[in-house]
Write a protein that binds this DNA or RNA. Structure first.
Lengths: 213, 213, 213, 213
DNA sequence: AATGAATGAGCGTTCATTCAT
DNA sequence: GATGAATGAACGCTCATTCAT
């Protein structure tokens, strides 16, 4: 669980400036990555979109892949922070689970494009960077697990909890990455409502069955 | 809904030969795309893996992207065919839904790598090719919708059916693209069992509730 | 002593063509290296001077350094071959030593520029390539040692032979790399004559002396 | 022959400071040039090794090449000074020639690395700087000429003297730049002894011969 | 129909140099 | 006098694509 902050080295000494310039960079790069993907975006385009020269870009990163990492890390961070702000895993009612799902789905709607980028480009990171970034994802899923565990005390098995958490997590992302099919038929509100309905009741076969091979 | 077969032009007249060469090409390219992704695979590598020269490769395609399309199309086709072979949407019992889910999940387990490629590289296709390929996906989702509709006659709303179909479809893919988290905790069998359990019963809150904002 | 031929890989299959193109390349590159040195010569300039495009250049080499190796190797090879052609180490007279020195110095005069390049750029090769190329140099020095040994049977110690061979070898090169000082005062003929004079008689202190610390 | 001191301009007025900073610079740069050569050393590295910032570096020089000149000039200067300190050209015995050779070779052993740098990088200087620096070399050779002339009064022709001086000079450098072959077989002491032996007696062909074509 | 040598636009990256603070 | 952030021309190299054979 412990993972020391992965640092992307910079030649610039002024840390505040590094933060500022990297934020410019992330902002510019996200837009480009959304538009055309990481591979089709050139470093010169990133520099231009960030508002500085190619030389300056390379004062703040070592390689193009560093930009991708910075972007992914930033998105994960923002998603995680917003989840932490809106979800309280200590609550113990079904209502709180429902609330968590609602706010998470709303978040996924707000950050559709970013999540899409993250989703499609993480695989272009080196193993190291991927591990680091996926750790954040694990932590987010773990938050959902906690919410579920506390909201439905004793009712579900650990396996069910883990899978539910994954399902909810992916259903949130799915709203963005399957927008071409989902957003024709649903608004984020109706999507949320129906998902919650299915989550709570399934297809309504009340008897537990088919639990084994 | 109707979409005429998207043709990739070739300079070669002999259609049987075109099919043969393209199959070689797809076979070689899939392996490479799985290994290193579309962008990091060169046309020379594709030619080599296909067993012919770079010149010959270009007799059967126009651009590198054509190879990606051919590969994606082929994967979708194979998935779709295997779904059609194992799923009968005319059945009307819950068991048949369960069976459909089981065989679809098994299929997704068998074709993990291919699905991952398809999943991650579709965005590199032109709009046209994407539309064509996503149409296939819609058809597959529609198959699941049919199964659901027939298995649970009158019980679920159209919205629920559509979303359920999407959920199942994505959960199948999720087994592959979230293997880093899921395949540590589940086998494809336990994964399937628990998903079916959740699908049928949800978290077991029997009362319909929270239907609106 | 055994050193397998160091191969620079090429993507081109036709070996005759590889040889032809590499000869063009060497010819073009030597001129440039003479003019401005290896580091200040760009790959594009090499390509242009060789009569083909930058892309083609890289079909015949892997890196810029390969060009340098090819050039150095070629020069060493030519020097060595010409030495082998003009020097017969089996001769046993002082005249034959004198002849060897004469023809070696003449060779160094003919190939001044090439020797200069070789001399100044070998250090830019990787360790591997350097070892390979310096082995050729050792072989040339060994030829001179043989000539000396056979020309002056029993007269000189092994240490003197080795050092003499090195002296002669470097004095040959020195004619080229110190042309700024030597070629104002000597022609290659007078240079050779005086060197031979000094070689044979030293400064004319006849008594052996100062042999130890 | 007269050559006014070549000045490298600086923006700084305080001459003592300029001298101090340049000495730091030379000290840092020499180490780097020995390690990796002039071309592979960056100005940033030079600044760092000198103990000041890149901005400050450029207050004391105009271009990177100025550093090379400063370094070469400093090395030549040090060599020349040490030669002047240890060699007295007014002596008139063969012993004094032998002494001069001994101390010069010892010097070349002490300053191997520096001499190697000087030797290999001089060609990267502009024509102007080269001329200036080679003038120092001429002066050193002239010192050896004087020693020879005075040690062997009337015995050798001017041509022989000039060539001998060059031979000795290069043989000293050769100890450093051919260390890969020489330093396996000799120590600086044995190298010196054998060279002196050869210098005095040649290969021991007592009769003057082969003076012309 | 098949080959593979040739092409050159374009990529990621570096680094000497400048100049506002 | 000292600093270091900023610049952008230029580098080595790649690779999708073409076309003569």
């Amino acid at each position: 669980m412990i993972m020391s902050k992965k640092e992307v080295p910079s030649s610039i000494k002024d840390e505040a400036l590094v933060t500022k310039r990297r934020n410019q960079m992330i902002k510019g790069a996200v837009t480009l990555f959304i538009e055309k993907g990481f591979h089709k975006t050139t470093t010169r385009e990133i520099a231009k979109a960030s508002g500085f020269s190619i030389g300056t870009l390379y004062e703040y990163i070592r390689t193009k892949e560093d930009v991708l990492f910075l972007v992914c890390d930033s998105i994960y961070q923002r998603v995680k922070e917003r989840m932490e702000a809106s979800i309280d895993p200590r609550e113990t009612t079904v209502q709180s689970l429902i609330h968590a799902v609602r706010s998470y789905f709303q978040l996924m709607d707000d950050m559709q494009d970013e999540v899409l980028v993250m989703y499609q480009e993480v695989k272009s990171l080196t193993r190291d960077a991927q591990d680091y970034v996926l750790q954040k994802e694990r932590e987010m899923v773990a938050m959902l697990e906690d919410v579920i565990r506390n909201s439905l005390p004793g009712r579900e098995s650990e396996e069910e909890i883990k899978l539910l958490a994954n399902n909810i997590f992916v259903q949130g992302q799915m709203w963005g990455f399957r927008r071409w099919i989902l957003q024709r038929q649903f608004t984020i509100e109706t999507y949320t409502d129906v998902q919650i309905q299915l989550l709570l009741n399934g297809v309504g076969e009340f008897q537990k069955q088919e639990g084994g091979a």
